[in-house]
Design a binder for these strands. Structure first.
Length: 765
DNA sequence: CAGTGAGCGAGCTTCCGCTTGACTT
């Protein structure tokens, strides 16, 4: 029999806490929630005041049995789940499952993991707060109602296995709407004029100043006219303004800001960041990684200060406490920080080291002094134009926190190059070295990355630290959005240069719209999004979560009854479900593109059984329509008639070789030639399936067949020793086997091969 | 691996938020 049993949510936390408590205490973990709404059906008795049907999920039975056993062996049980809505619900479920007397105060909370904080908590236990529990039940039940009533409507009206939810559907909406803004965006161009000035009339190498004209010119001829003025102008320094300023460090990491910075600085995906952080947490190297708080414990503040003074000196230290500003934050944890700030680095994988270093720098920087900067703005006048040239320069007078860390931005602003300016005086003459007018196009808002989507969701108060990564994987999994690269398109820009009184023009290529790891909506995502906006506008409204959260807060304060809140929501909601099921037609996103220019057959695109499909002709008048899948980068919404018609060109027959047909087509894995039931891939950028000739096809087939012959090194009945991309390997019964290192291929016998295959088969079993 | 788009119907899919492994490549 042990005196005290403390139950927390996380096993890593249990381990840490146990160290602080004496031998009278045993600390174990519930691994999060232990009960949930029944997996099958709705799990809610709607008719009976939304009475929930809770069950212990299969994968939790083992933990619960261990908890029960530990509970039976302890005299006093303390429930120390997190101090927020979900934590209170976990406590309540634990009390229920472990059959604890609800009137005995057994609920404790820690704000910090220190001996004092823990013993203080145990001296001040309380009862479970049922208002808080009820607000969690309302949250849980509302999410189940939304998800489990709308999803089946999608199965009937759009496609099977689709899903909708309070969080995921808004995430998809953001991406779809951003894409539509980009689709309808019309880039406009103007000429941006920049100049390099010098201070000496003769010496072109003398101190130089880069400046930009205060005006942009919409057309080339206007830019040229201005350059002509520049050619004959006399320049003087009009004004010099020096403004002192400061810059402050960003707050310590929350889950969301960690995901953003790890993406920007380290190129990690959101899921990758969480996996690496979990490892660091389990090893006791950082604090908990799922948090919305920017708060640092007193201990962390003091330790960081010590480290800063030791590493950089007293004047670099400035203790700060940041206020958490994100909507709906529940602040059950600290910010993400090094568990021991005096550990400047850690052992582990490269990624663990990099992420730790990032967390360390951000935490330490947050406790450092402001940087002091001096920003100088110079205005250069022309004697023959009211247009001025402006130059800015920034000098860091004191680096402060910048010594350690500066936050990255989502917008890649290379424009703001901050040069050091030479010493200047008002009215001083200046001379141009070169003036150039470059055509610049406006760009639409950028597509979301995983990390910038998380940032947006957090701003809207939608989702929680524990769900950002899973939500992003769900919407990709359902096929609503996809993370992709795009090569962009070349476009031409004109530039004019004034050099030694002469104006020349040139045309250059630039690539516009190049994308890397961005979230693109897929057709099914757009169709589902439009269906939801049409039928359930209030659910996918950006403010829906914020509005229900307000009500959950009122329930938590005991001002609102949770069942009443649900009744008010569910009444109209369920009516909409029923009327949508009854009245609305199937939604396929069909678009009529026009008619085939020769045959007059109608061309349509829509979502088919196997994805987006173009259809040529229809079956009404006995005709047999032709179908063709859209390519990955085409959308039902934007495909043109010409593009759709092109889809029907392939597969096409090139001719006959030795009594067999050669067909060229485009498949899942790129363009191919099919001949005698064998496939030959076309090389990207070399051969084009639309213009491929019979001669070239025959060449490709010959080449590949010859390579195939070279591939076979040895042959033992049904076992082949082949030369592959990664070296020699064995092939038998359509399965491949690796050859152990150091094997002499010349001496390899059939028996050796059989033994290699048998060993490999055993391993996989 | 490189396709599919006739129609019927049984049985399944699905939410968000708390926590980690148990899986496979």
């Amino acid at each position: 029999m042990i005196e005290n049993l403390v139950i927390v949510e996380s096993p890593a936390k249990a381990k840490t806490i146990e160290k602080f408590l004496g031998k009278d205490f045993r600390v174990i973990s519930s691994f999060g929630h232990i009960r949930d709404l029944a997996k099958k059906n709705l799990g809610i008795d709607v008719e009976n005041d939304f009475s929930p049907v809770y069950e212990i999920p299969k994968e939790k039975i083992k933990v619960v049995n261990e908890l029960r056993k530990a509970a039976s062996e302890a005299k006093i049980i303390w429930i120390a789940s997190d101090e927020d809505r979900e934590g209170e619900a976990i406590a309540w479920h634990l009390a229920g499952v472990l059959k604890l007397n609800p009137d005995t105060p057994r609920r404790i909370v820690f704000h910090e993991i220190t001996k004092d904080a823990i013993s203080n908590a145990i001296e001040n236990p309380r009862k479970i707060n049922m208002d808080l529990v009820n607000s969690q039940q309302a949250r849980r039940i509302l999410d189940r109602l939304v998800g489990f009533e709308i999803s089946p409507v999608l199965w009937k009206k759009v496609q099977p296995s689709l899903s909708a939810g309070r969080v995921q559907s808004v995430a998809v909406r953001l991406i779809v709407e951003r894409e539509r803004e980009i689709i309808s965006f019309k880039p406009e161009s103007s000429y941006r004029v920049t100049s390099v000035f010098r201070i000496d009339e003769k010496d072109t190498e003398s101190s130089i100043i880069r400046a930009e004209a205060s005006k942009r010119f919409p057309h080339g001829d206007e830019a040229v006219k201005f350059l002509e003025l520049c050619s004959s102008a006399q320049y003087t320094v009009g004004s010099i303004t020096v403004k002192p300023g400061t810059r402050s460090p960003a707050p310590p990491f929350t889950t969301s800001t960690l995901q953003q910075e790890a993406y920007r600085k380290l190129g990690f995906s959101v899921a990758q960041t969480m996996t690496v952080a979990q490892k660091l947490y389990e090893a006791g190297k950082i604090t908990y990684m799922r948090t919305d708080s920017t708060n640092l414990s007193k201990l962390a503040l003091a330790k960081s200060r010590e480290v800063i003074i030791a590493e950089y000196g007293e004047k670099y230290a400035k203790t700060r406490q940041f206020v958490t500003k994100s909507k709906g934050a529940q602040e059950a944890h600290e910010a993400i920080r090094p568990a021991y700030p005096d550990n400047l680095s850690v052992q582990g994988t490269q990624n663990e080291k990099k992420l730790y270093e990032l967390i360390w720098k951000r935490t330490i920087a947050s406790q450092m002094a402001d940087a002091i900067v001096e920003k100088t703005t110079i205005i250069i006048n022309m004697n023959n134009s009211s247009v001025t040239f402006n130059a800015t320069g920034e000098i860091v007078k004191f680096d402060g926190f910048l010594k350690v860390y500066s936050e990255s931005s989502d917008l890649d602003n290379h424009d703001e190059e901050k040069d050091l300016l030479p010493p200047l005086k008002t009215d001083m003459p200046l001379y141009y070295n070169i003036v150039s007018a470059v055509q610049k196009f406006t760009t639409p808002l950028p597509r979301y990355t995983e990390a910038s989507l998380v940032k947006k969701l957090e701003e809207l108060g939608i989702g929680r630290p524990s769900t950002y990564a899973p939500t992003i994987s769900t919407i990709q999994h359902r096929g609503y959005v996809s993370k992709e690269d795009r090569p962009g398109e070349k476009r031409q820009i004109t530039l004019y240069t004034l050099d030694k009184g002469k104006i020349t023009s040139a045309v250059k290529n630039e690539v516009a719209g190049k994308e890397k790891s961005k979230l693109f909506p897929q057709d099914i995502g757009m169709i589902v999004n439009d269906f939801l906006i049409e039928n359930f506008p209030e659910i996918v409204d950006y403010n829906f979560t914020a509005e229900v959260e307000e009500q959950f807060d009122e329930i938590a304060l005991g001002k609102l009854k949770w069942t009443g809140m649900l009744h008010k929501f569910y009444g109209p909601f369920h009516k909409t479900i029923e009327s949508t099921l009854e009245k609305k037609n199937r939604k396929t996103g069909v678009r009529v593109l026009g008619n085939h220019p020769e045959t007059g057959e109608p061309v349509t695109v829509r979502m088919g059984r196997f994805g987006p499909v173009a259809q040529l002709g229809n079956s009404d008048d006995g005709g047999k329509p032709r179908f063709a899948s859209l390519t990955r980068d085409q959308l039902i919404e934007t495909i043109t008639l010409e593009e759709a018609l092109r889809l029907f060109i392939l597969p096409r027959s090139l001719g006959i070789l030795e009594e067999a047909e050669i067909v060229v087509g485009k498949g899942k894995f790129g363009p191919y030639i099919r001949y005698q039931n064998k496939f030959f891939s076309l090389k990207k950028g070399v051969d084009d399936p639309y213009s491929l000739t019979l001669e070239r096809a025959v060449e490709i087939i010959r080449e590949k067949n010859e390579n195939e012959k070279k591939k076979v090194i040895k042959e033992f009945d049904d076992i082949l020793l082949l030369n592959g991309r990664y070296g020699p390997y064995l092939s038998s019964n359509k399965k491949n086997y690796r050859i152990p290192r150091g094997t002499d291929l010349n001496k390899l016998t059939k028996e050796d091969c059989i033994s290699i295959i048998e060993k490999s088969e055993k391993k996989t079993k």
